[in-house]
Computed example of a mutant assay.
Amino acid sequence: MTRLPKKAALITTAVLPFALGATAASAAQITSWDYEVDNSFSDVTFSEGTGTGSVAADGQSVSWGSDDARSSISITDASNPPPLVTNGDMVPGGVFSHDNAVIPASSAALASFNLNSTLTLTAATPDEMAGTSPDPVTISFQSFFTETLNNGDCFEGSASTCDDVFSLANPEFGNLNEAGNFEVTGPNFSIDGTSYSVFLEIVGLNQLSDEQCAVADAPANCIGFLTQEGNNNIFESNFRIETAAASVPEPGSLALLGLGLAGLGVAKRRNK
């Protein structure tokens, strides 16, 4: 039987368990989450004109127009949401609505706003990760609003007389997904060596035609949606989460593994 020199055997015995253990010691990936969503509007501005614009104290609704005719937008948080599965399907985030009334042309109107969705995550499975919670993730849509004239001279694609237009100020922070909806990526976060990314979409938010973008005074190929006059227009927001495993050993672990292998090589040469 081959015997290792005492010194080489000690190096190998001391180093290999740490080196091999470093590659195996990786926390379990979180497979499902409980979550809460807090939606709100911020940085709201209005155009000049008669009447008033107002923002609710909880930041979840904005209204504008005259005393007799007012339009509004509101956002409602998802209630009793289902579990959010890592690398799974979209789950509800909230409901955005535009109650689009015909207001006087001279009225002050909504001009711009940020729609903010803050997601608070708590790991549900596996059991050994349950209760783990990263910092809340906030995703914002910076938006412009165009209150169109209701004079019958409407642009292409307008279903009412005339549709109003929402457009994004920061479309470079997202892309159209497979469903054709615009999706924004939130900041990444890591838990025990695994990186997670949160994505938020608004159903119906997509690329507008050049003429529709021009009406909104936005660049060609802008991202936005139209809302019909005289209707309460509803748009749902949804979340999903993806992960990219980061189980590669750290440089220190690789160095330990290298020392262990080197010790085996020295022992083999000495034995020869």
Rank of each mutant, 00 (worst) to 15 (best):
V215K: 06
T118H: 12
E147W: 01
Q207F: 01
A246Q: 13
V203A: 14
P92N: 04
K272N: 14
P251A: 09
S97R: 10
S61C: 00
A78Q: 07
G157T: 06
D135P: 01
N181G: 07
N116C: 02
L121K: 12
A78H: 07
N206C: 00
S26E: 07
P136F: 13
P5W: 06
S117W: 02
K272M: 12
P5H: 13
C154H: 12
N80D: 15
G131H: 12
T12P: 00
S167Q: 11
L149P: 02
V37T: 15
S66V: 06
T122E: 09
E48Q: 15
S61M: 00
S190M: 03
E250G: 09
E201S: 13
E242P: 00
L200T: 10
N39C: 07
F18D: 01
E211T: 11
V91W: 06
A246M: 08
S106H: 04
N116D: 14
G49A: 09
F155A: 09
Q228G: 08
T122N: 05
Q142T: 12
A28V: 07
P17H: 10
E183H: 02
S112M: 01
S26N: 13
G59C: 02
A255G: 12
G94W: 08
I223M: 04
V266G: 03
R240Q: 09
S143N: 08
A124L: 05
T45P: 01
W33C: 11
T122M: 07
S158H: 09
P187K: 14
H98I: 04
W64M: 00
G131C: 10
V62F: 01
L264E: 11
L256V: 13
S209Q: 01
V95C: 00
G252N: 08
Q228V: 03
T125D: 08
Q142K: 15
F144E: 04
A57L: 11
Q29A: 12
D210H: 07
G204H: 00
N170R: 13
S209N: 02
E36S: 15
I241D: 03
E250M: 06
C162V: 05
C154S: 12
L208F: 04
V37G: 03
F113M: 13
V44F: 01
G152E: 08
S253P: 05
Q29M: 11
P219G: 06
N233F: 04
D153V: 15
A9T: 02
P126N: 02
L10Y: 08
G265A: 15
S40I: 09
T185I: 09
I75M: 14
N177E: 06
N116K: 14
L208C: 04
W33M: 10
S167E: 09
S190P: 01
S42H: 02
F189M: 09
P171G: 11
C154E: 13
V215H: 05
T227A: 12
S72Q: 08
A69V: 02
T161L: 00
F235C: 01
